[in-house]
Simulated assay, not measured.
Amino acid sequence: MTSLLAVAHGTRSAAGQSQIRDLVDRVAGRLPGVEVRLAYVDVQQPRVADAIRATDVVVPLLLSAGHHVRVDIGEAAAAAGAVVAPPLGPDPVLVDILRRRLPPCDAVVLASAGSSDPAWRAEVDGVAAELGGTVAYASGRERLVPDVVARLRRSGKRRIVVAAYLLADGLFYRSLHRAGADRVTAPLCEDPAVADLVRTRFRDLTMAASGL
């Protein structure tokens, strides 16, 4: 039986944990005959290095090819002889989800977790450009979400929406609701299209490996 190991970041949020498990259950329902399991790179167990044995394909439930994909997942996959699919983002599917969720507003703030990786930042900038929005981060020392929202308020924007570029509930997501915006979109993983995207990542990689 072909196997898929979905690897999430991990969170202490019970709601976020449930959302990721539900996402993986939906993926399993879309891939009959494939063994689908879940592991994490941080916070939760099992960790990817412990769960990757006898795995054919790894699909990172992450939004960019940052440290966790390159190092945590990459090294574990290399040791186990598994192949790794691209992360979920950036992808037009995610942009479409965010666009569908946006109500009428004066300004959009694309809120992401934050990273010092230039490639990661460029990817987030590209997503924001697709939405006509402004990038802000839920962590770090610059372009923090509350600061960006406050700046937009001072510039005269009356209805501001934070488009959450986050997969599941957790510390970063909850902080967005205290940033002063009028609305925050739901975590991405709650949209059925994300399960379809995981399935596509898996199928594209298995077809490429088989030479089809």
Rank of each mutant, 00 (worst) to 15 (best):
S155L: 13
L61E: 04
V135W: 00
P87G: 09
G29I: 11
L131S: 05
V59M: 04
T200D: 14
A77F: 00
P103L: 14
V95P: 03
R53C: 12
R100H: 08
A209S: 10
L62Q: 08
A79F: 04
T2M: 12
P192H: 08
G133P: 05
P192L: 09
D91W: 09
I160E: 06
D25H: 05
A195Y: 04
P92I: 10
A122E: 15
H67Y: 15
V7T: 06
A77H: 04
P104K: 07
S155G: 13
G89D: 00
R201Y: 10
A65I: 08
T200V: 14
D196H: 11
L110Y: 04
L131G: 07
L5M: 06
R53I: 12
V57I: 13
V124T: 02
A122F: 03
K157C: 15
S64Q: 12
A113P: 14
V43A: 02
D72E: 09
P104F: 12
D22Y: 06
A65N: 15
V43H: 01
T200H: 07
P87S: 05
A28K: 01
S3W: 08
A76H: 01
V162H: 09
A54W: 09
A193Q: 10
D72P: 05
V71I: 12
R99Q: 11
K157R: 15
P146H: 13
E190G: 13
L88A: 08
E142K: 14
D42A: 06
P86Y: 01
G211H: 10
P103K: 12
S139A: 13
L63M: 06
L131A: 05
M1T: 15
R21T: 11
A80T: 07
Q19I: 09
L176R: 01
A107T: 07
G180M: 04
G89H: 02
L152D: 11
P60V: 03
L171N: 13
D191R: 00
G132N: 08
A113W: 09
L152P: 07
S64C: 11
E123T: 11
L171A: 14
S64I: 08
P86M: 03
A168P: 07
V194W: 07
A107L: 01
G16Q: 01
E190H: 06
G66D: 10
G114T: 04
V93C: 09
M207G: 10
V93T: 14
V27K: 00
A107N: 03
V58F: 00
G211E: 08
L197F: 12
A51F: 00
A65E: 15
K157N: 14
D125L: 08
V27E: 02
D22T: 15
P90D: 03
R141Y: 02
R158N: 12
